[in-house]
Design a protein around this nucleic acid. Structure first.
Lengths: 346, 346
DNA sequence: CCGGATAGCGAAAACGCTTAACAAAGCTTC
DNA sequence: GAAGCTTTGTTAAGCGTTTTCGCTATCCGG
C-alpha cells in the first residue's frame, strides 16, 4: 500500500536510472536487450504497478474517459424504473474505450447537487461524454474548457458541442407510415412521454409527418400523455378506453408505456392487434417476449455509446477540428402487435 | 486544456498562498470569511477544476474505485448475449460509491490479454472489485498487494479476500421444495449451465438437497446441460422431449435457458404448466412478461454491487481488519409457470 | 586517425496538488 | 502586561512519473 514499489526502486535494483526504466516500459524498442529483460524482470518480481496519478500528472493524460449519466434519484420503490438504456450506452462506451486501451469512469449526476461530482470527474479524465440533462449549460461550458466534451441525446443546447443523437422523428415516421399503408389503419392515436421531453416531441412530430403525408388529419397535440413509464401507459390506456372511440392503432412514445397498455387491454378483453394495434419505441429486451410481441422501433443504444466515445477520441487527438454531429438512424422492428405476423421467432 | 488554471493561478489572483487556496477548498471551516469568499469566487471565475492526477498523487488517494468485469468477447452476433446482470452490478456499485462521493472506473477484462488493462486500472484506483473469472489467481494476488480487492461471485479461490456472493444453493433448494411440496410434482429435471461453472454446480446441489429432503431419488448428474443461453435451453429442451418420459417439472439453471425451453414447448404444443412446469433462476426483467410468467429465483444483483463497494470502503479505511465474506440470500418469485397463479399482475 | 553519427543511458526539471512545520497576529485570562 | 490559545497564513518538502537535455561510448567512412 504505502510501500508500493516505485520505478525508482526498480531502477536501483537494476542499477540503472528511472529514465531507463520508464523508457523500457513504454518504448518497445529501447535500450539493449539485456537491460530490457533485466528491467522487465525486476519490475515483475517487485510487483510494480504504475501509479496512475503520477503517470497522469507527468504525461498530462489520464488514460480514462468519463461518462456522466442522469440519476433520477429513484425513490427506492421504483427499483427497476431507472432508464435501462443507460446500461447499453455504458456498455457501448466501455467497449470502444477498451479498444483504445482506456477505461471508463462512470458517475451518475443527480438532478441537484451533482455538480461537484461532475467537476471532480472532469478533472480525472481525458474527455467526457455527458448524458445528463441535469447539468446546466453553464456547467457544461465550464467543463468543456477543461476537457473535451461530447453530448449524448437531444439536449436542446447541444449544438455547440460534438454530439450524437438518435433520429427519433424518422423512426416514428416510418413506423406510422407502416401502420397506415400496410394495414390501412385510418384512425391513429399517439401517447406521448413527459411534457417537455425533446425525445417525445420529436417522436410526435414524426407521427404527424406520416399522417400528413398520407393525407390524414394531423392532430394538434398527442392523444394522451404517459410519462414514459409502464404505469403512465396504463393510465393513458384507461383514459383512451373510456373515451368515445378507440383509435384503430395506437403509437406509444416508448415500449414501457406500450407494456402498460397491453396489460390494460388484456384485462379489458380487447384483442391486440385485432381490436387495436399497439406499437412502442426503443425495442427494449422484453419487447419481443410480450404477447403479442411488440412492433417497435429499435434505438441503437450501444452504438450511441460507441459513437460518443469515438467522437471523443477524435476530438482529443485534434482539439481544434470542426465540430461533429452524429445522427444515428433507428430500425423498424415489425412484430405481431401491429397486425403483421401472428407468431414467429423474432 | 494545456492552459488550465491551477491553484497557483488562483492563489496569485487572490494574493494568498496555494496552501490557503487548497485549505479553503477542503476545510469547510478554514480562514476568514473574507478570504474564503475571495478564493471561492476567483476559483469559479477562472473556471478552475481540480486536477485529479495531481490531487491523487499528493494525497495518495484517487477518489475512485474500480470494477473489473468479464468480457465474453461476444462475437458481434450475440449482441445481447453478454451477461446482462453485469449492468445491475455496475449500477449497484455506482450507487454506493456515489454515496461516498466516489466515481467508479469500469473495465471489461478479456479472457486473454486483459492483464495489462487490469494492472493499469489497479494503479488508478483506491480499491478494486473484481468480477472476472478471467484474471488468474496470481494476477489477483499481485493486484491485491497494490490496492484492496473485493471478489464478486463464487470464484473458487476467493477465500483469501473479502468477497460477496449469492446463496445459489438455498435459492434453488427453496424453489425445488416449493415444486415438490406445493405441487406434489414427483418427477423433476434439472438443466445445468456450462460445465465447470461454480454457480451452476451450486444450483444443482441445491436441487439435489431438496430432492433428498423430500425422500425422492437424488440424481448423479443434471438431466441436461444448456450453457446458460437461450439457445442452449432450446437444445436441452429438445433433447428432453425426445427422451422417454418428460419430467413433470424442470428446474432450469437460469432464466435464459428457461426462455428457450418455453418457446420450444410452445412450438411442440406442450402446455406450461399443465403438461410440464418450468422454472428459472435470476429473475431477469423479461421473466414476468413471459407466457406464462416465469417462476424463478431473484438474485439481488444490484445489492451485490452495493455490498462489494461497501466492503471495499471498509477495507480501505481499515486495511488490517479481518477478512469479510458477505453471503446474499435470494428470493423465491412464484409466478404461473410452476402451476401457481394462472394470471395476475406480478 | 579523425570528425561525426548514433546507440545507450543519466541528471534533473517539471507536472499541480497536499501537508507538515512554522510564524505572526489577535484573543483571552489571570 | 505576560503567558498561553486560536486563528490565519506562509514556506517548502514531497508525491511517482515523464521528458528534455545532454553526456559518453562505440562505430563508420574517408
Amino acid at each position: 500500500m504505502s510501500d508500493r514499489p516505485t520505478i525508482y526502486a526498480v531502477a536501483q535494483r537494476c542499477g540503472v536510472s528511472t529514465t531507463t526504466v520508464s523508457r523500457v516500459l513504454h518504448d518497445e524498442s529501447f535500450g539493449s536487450e539485456r537491460t530490457r529483460q533485466l528491467v522487465l524482470r525486476v519490475a515483475a518480481e517487485l510487483g510494480w504497478v504504475p501509479n496512475g496519478a503520477a503517470q497522469g500528472l507527468a504525461s498530462r493524460k489520464a488514460g480514462v474517459v468519463g461518462l456522466l449519466f442522469p440519476d433520477l434519484g429513484l425513490p427506492a420503490a421504483a427499483e427497476e424504473e431507472s432508464p435501462l438504456y443507460v446500461d447499453q450506452v455504458i456498455r457501448g462506451a466501455e467497449r470502444t474505450a477498451a479498444s483504445m486501451g482506456q477505461a471508463v469512469l462512470i458517475a451518475a449526476v443527480k438532478a441537484s447537487g451533482g455538480k461537484s461530482l461532475a467537476y471532480s470527474v472532469a478533472g480525472k479524465v481525458d474527455g467526457l461524454v455527458i448524458m445528463s440533462r441535469s447539468l446546466s449549460d453553464k456547467d457544461i461550458a465550464t467543463i468543456s474548457q477543461t476537457v473535451p466534451v461530447v453530448l449524448l441525446a437531444n439536449k436542446p443546447g447541444s449544438r455547440s458541442y460534438d454530439n450524437v443523437s438518435v433520429d427519433n422523428r424518422t423512426g416514428v415516421r416510418e413506423l406510422t407510415s407502416h401502420l397506415i399503408s400496410h394495414h390501412s389503419y385510418a384512425s391513429l392515436g399517439f401517447v406521448a412521454g413527459p411534457h417537455g421531453s425533446p425525445d417525445s416531441a420529436e417522436r410526435f412530430r414524426g407521427f404527424c409527418e406520416a399522417l400528413g403525408t398520407a393525407g390524414l388529419p394531423v392532430p394538434e397535440a398527442p392523444t394522451a400523455e404517459g410519462n414514459f413509464t409502464e404505469i403512465g401507459g396504463r393510465k393513458a390506456m384507461h383514459r383512451l378506453i373510456e373515451q368515445a372511440e378507440l383509435p384503430r392503432a395506437i403509437v406509444f412514445g416508448n415500449d414501457e408505456m406500450a407494456i402498460g397498455a397491453l396489460s390494460v387491454l388484456h384485462d379489458s378483453s380487447l384483442r391486440v392487434p385485432e381490436d387495436v394495434a399497439i406499437t412502442g419505441f426503443d425495442d427494449i429486451a422484453v419487447a419481443r417476449h410480450l404477447h403479442p410481441p411488440l412492433t417497435t422501433v429499435r434505438q441503437p443504444m450501444r452504438e450511441l455509446g460507441e459513437q460518443a466515445v469515438s467522437l471523443l477520441f477524435a476530438r482529443i487527438q485534434d482539439p481544434r477540428s470542426s465540430r461533429k454531429s452524429v445522427y444515428l438512424s433507428t430500425e423498424l422492428v415489425v412484430r405481431a402487435s401491429c397486425g403483421c405476423e401472428t407468431s414467429g421467432t423474432n
